[in-house]
Simulated scan of single mutants.
Amino acid sequence: MRKLYCFDFDGTLTYRDTMFMFLRHYNACRFYIRFVLHIPLFILLKLRLMDAETVKKSFISSVLKGERRSRIEEESDRFFNENFPAVMRQNALDFLKSRDSAQTESWLVTASLDIWVRPFAQKFNMKLLATEAEFRDDVFTGRFITPNCNGNEKLNRIRAEIKGRKFDKIIAFGDTAGDKPMLNWADESYFRFFH
């Protein structure tokens, strides 16, 4: 039986959101300064007066814009090495180890930026569907080349990737409202399964 597993990342497989963790890891001084400057935007987001994608883009850009791809990738690998497996839910690790890789495909479908999630996807031999960072001349522009991979966009990305391929069963895992379109679409879905 050919199965496709679609896993959300932050909060589903991990104990914590990795965006703040990675940005603090990358440059703690800049992170804290930018965090304080973004407090008004975080408040507007909480009050639903701003959308998450705008605030996320602004904050990530304020820390990483202008950085070279090679340095970001180097720090992403270091971040992975320093935080794996501690950041992962033990139940999730056990489940991932038990997959029958011959009969299954596993995709990591996340709103997090591809640059710091890629080492995790590689570790678990998963295809990565994430919000993608834009680089020009190997320098991060501060923009994304894809829409924020959350909500309906998660489902759009999965459908585009499937491209007519057939699976006997599609199984999805998530932990927030942003995962609901993916969970509702899958043949089998699990909400906060690893919590």
Rank of each mutant, 00 (worst) to 15 (best):
L155H: 06
V63C: 12
T176V: 06
A160V: 01
E82V: 06
F80L: 01
V117R: 00
K56G: 09
N27G: 01
E105L: 06
G174Y: 10
A111T: 06
S76M: 07
F9L: 03
L129I: 15
Y190T: 02
F194T: 05
Q90N: 12
V36F: 13
K65A: 15
V55R: 02
L44R: 11
F20I: 06
A172Y: 03
L93D: 01
T14R: 00
R136N: 10
L64K: 09
C149G: 03
K56C: 06
L23R: 11
S61T: 09
E105R: 11
Y26Q: 04
K56N: 11
L129S: 08
F135I: 03
M88Y: 07
F31R: 03
E153R: 13
C6A: 12
G142A: 05
N83F: 09
F7H: 06
C6I: 11
F95W: 14
R165H: 10
F173K: 10
D138H: 14
E73G: 08
Q90L: 00
A172P: 09
Y32D: 10
F31L: 00
R2S: 14
M19E: 12
H25N: 08
A28K: 14
E188Y: 03
G178L: 07
K166S: 11
G66D: 01
R143S: 06
W185E: 14
F31V: 00
F124R: 00
V55T: 13
G66P: 04
H25W: 15
L113H: 08
F7V: 00
E75Y: 02
F9T: 02
C149L: 00
A160M: 10
M19V: 13
S61H: 06
Y26V: 02
R143C: 10
V109W: 03
R71T: 13
S62C: 09
N81C: 09
M21I: 08
W116N: 11
D51I: 07
F193L: 03
D114P: 02
N156R: 15
R69Y: 14
R71L: 14
R159F: 08
P85V: 00
L41E: 14
E53Q: 14
D175I: 02
R157P: 04
L113E: 12
E161K: 07
P119T: 04
K97H: 13
S76D: 02
I33R: 15
N184Y: 09
D114W: 07
D77H: 07
I60N: 10
F42A: 13
N83V: 05
V87G: 08
S189Y: 08
P40L: 05
W107N: 05
M182E: 10
L155F: 10
K123I: 09
L23G: 07
Q90Y: 08
E132A: 06
W185N: 12
N150T: 07
F59A: 10
A102H: 09
P119G: 07
E132F: 00
L129W: 02
R78W: 00
F31S: 02
E161Y: 07
W107T: 04
S61K: 11
P85Q: 09
P85E: 09
R89N: 03
P147L: 03
P119M: 10
V139L: 08
V139Y: 04
R30T: 15
I170N: 04
Q103N: 15
F191A: 04
